[in-house]
Every structure is written in C-alpha cells, then in structure tokens.
Amino acid sequence: MTNLTAPVHSELPRLVQPIAVFDAGIGSYAAVAAIRYRLPDQDILYFADRASFPYGNKGRAELLAILGRTLSYLDTFEPSAVLVASNAPSITVLDDLIGEIDRPIFGVRPPIAEALHDSGGGDVAVLGVASMVRSPELRAYADAQAGNDAGRVHLVDASSLVDLVESGAFLFDRERTQKEVNAFFGALARSRPGITALTLSSTHLPWLRSYMERARPDWRLFDPLEAAIDAILPHATQGNGTILGLVTEDDRFGVEDFQSMLTRLGVSLPLYRVAP
C-alpha cells in the first residue's frame, strides 16, 4: 500500500487536535462548513483525495486500501476525531476500519429510520451514487433500519445529480441545474408515487438542496451529515479556528481545478499538495 507524502508538518499551519474530514470530492466541504458553524474555535484538517475520485466506483478491497492509507496519514496530525465524509465507504467498509487508528472514526449513513418516522406514512427514497444504491451492504443497512417497513424504502441512483455538483454546473449554470433537478424529481415521482421523503445520501447532494426544494417543496429532505456532526461534537477541542486544506491530484483532477471550485463556492482556503 503506497504511503501519502506531503510537506513536513513544520511547514504547515499548526493545528491543535483537529477534527479530520476527508472524501474524494467537493461534497465533503459541506462537512467542514457545518463543523465550523457548530464549533468556530475547532481546528479542522480537510483532506480531499482527488486522485482517488470517485470512491463510489471502487471495489471493496480498493476502498479498504485507500481508507486504510488515508487514516494512517491523517493520524500523524493527532486528530481528536476523523470523519469519513462519504456515504459509499461509510456503508460498505467503515465498520472494518474501526480501530485502524487510535482515534474515534465516524461516517455518514442514510438516516432511514428518522425519515420513515417523519414521512407522514409515505415512502422514503435513498438518493446516492449507483455503486452505493446497488450494493448489498446498503440494502442490508436499509432493511435493518426500516424493519417491517422495508418495502417503503427505495434505493435510487442519483449519479446524474451528483454530476451537477462535481462539474460545478450548480454554481455557474443554475437554469440548466434546476431543469435537470425538476426532470429527475418528476421521473422519480412518476415511478414511485408514494414518496414523501428523501435522504441525501451523497455528500454532494446537500449542495442542491435549494434546487430540490423548488422542485418538490412537499417532500422532506434528510441530510446524513447532521447526525454525524452531532456524534463528533463531544470530541471537540479548543483550537484556533484554523482550517488546513490538503489535496491529492492526478492527470484528471488538478489542485488548481479544485481550488477554482472552492472559490466558486465562496471559500478562500490555501491548499497544500499531497503526493498519492
């Protein structure tokens, strides 16, 4: 397993027991923003593993290798907690990695039981990337969460919506984005007319929340990130409110492109390259 290498810690901004957040895409910055809002003095280590994008199309063995390598690297920063801010590995391999490092590790998982409880008796759609919604691990998780109501839970491929975020279209082509969200939700409503609630089970999807609310204001939206942040709060530490951004890159996804995406989000954050 190849190790990650980056500038020596002495060359980086100093962090005090940061909360480490990582994923392969831009969606995970929503977790950084949520932690910053709840814990303004908490130091945060934000690691975007662009060289491994997307996590969602990786096999189990590859995901285990990627996450194991990443956890070992992040552990060198002595974090107070680590958040795997990606639904697919959180569902499929995270349980196998608990104890990999001597830090608490959290993931993001669809809040299916909560959505069923608050759906008004309607059905729940779990929106995620194709590999996740087709995985036996998610079906088993959904069935366990739903119990006797498993028939009311539908796993829905929302990869086309994720692409709207990853491409940046949701920022610079709002008219097209709204049309595509409207069309997606229209097709979903026709195929599953009982739906009254959705779980946004890709960290990209909350960036489309305003588009979704315009498309279907009658559907309730549930963000898996909210429960994850609640679980992390007891591990907060007093820091300086510093956010350190680390990024891997490859021939497909350069650091400059990722920096541009953050800038379009209104995020000013210096990024440091990490060699995969």
Rank of each mutant, 00 (worst) to 15 (best):
Y211E: 10
F22Q: 03
Y73H: 15
V247H: 04
M261S: 15
L127I: 10
M261I: 12
L67N: 03
S80C: 13
V133Q: 02
D163I: 07
G151C: 12
A228V: 04
Q17M: 14
A231E: 11
P111H: 07
L127V: 08
I195L: 10
I35A: 09
S191F: 09
A20N: 00
S28F: 02
P104Q: 06
G120N: 07
V16H: 14
L221M: 09
L208D: 01
S119Q: 06
L205Y: 06
L205P: 07
L4V: 10
N57I: 08
E166I: 09
N182Y: 11
G128A: 15
P136I: 11
D251G: 14
V267P: 08
R220V: 11
I105G: 03
V32F: 09
A236F: 08
S268A: 14
D157Y: 00
A24M: 08
L205I: 12
L15A: 02
L262N: 02
A142V: 04
A215G: 05
R103W: 10
L39M: 14
A187F: 11
S201E: 03
G68F: 00
L188F: 04
I44N: 05
V165M: 00
S28R: 01
D49M: 11
R139S: 15
A231D: 13
T2P: 12
E226I: 15
P79D: 05
K179D: 13
Y46R: 00
R214G: 10
E62G: 12
L225K: 04
L127C: 08
Q145D: 04
G56P: 05
P234G: 01
A130E: 14
G59I: 12
A65Q: 13
G194Y: 03
A31G: 08
F184T: 07
A142T: 06
T263H: 11
Y55V: 11
Q42R: 00
G168I: 00
Y37D: 13
Y211R: 12
S28V: 06
N57W: 04
L39W: 08
F106D: 04
Q259W: 10
R134F: 10
R69C: 11
A197Q: 02
G68H: 05
L83G: 07
E213G: 07
D49I: 12
A144Q: 13
A146L: 02
P7S: 02
Q42E: 09
A158R: 01
A30I: 13
L94F: 01
F185V: 13
E11I: 07
V84D: 01
V162T: 14
Y272G: 04
I98K: 11
P79K: 05
A146S: 05
L45K: 02
L208E: 07
Y29N: 10
R109W: 08
D257Y: 07
V165T: 02
H204M: 04
L71G: 03
Y211C: 09
A187P: 08
V129I: 15
W219E: 10
M212K: 04
G186W: 01
M1Y: 13
P104D: 07
I19L: 11
W207N: 05
I26V: 15
H154L: 01
L246I: 05
F22G: 00
R176W: 11
R139C: 08
R209S: 15
A197E: 00
I91F: 07
V93W: 04
S80E: 10
S86L: 10
I243W: 06
T237A: 15
P224D: 03
G25I: 08
A33E: 11
Y55D: 10
R36G: 06
F22T: 00
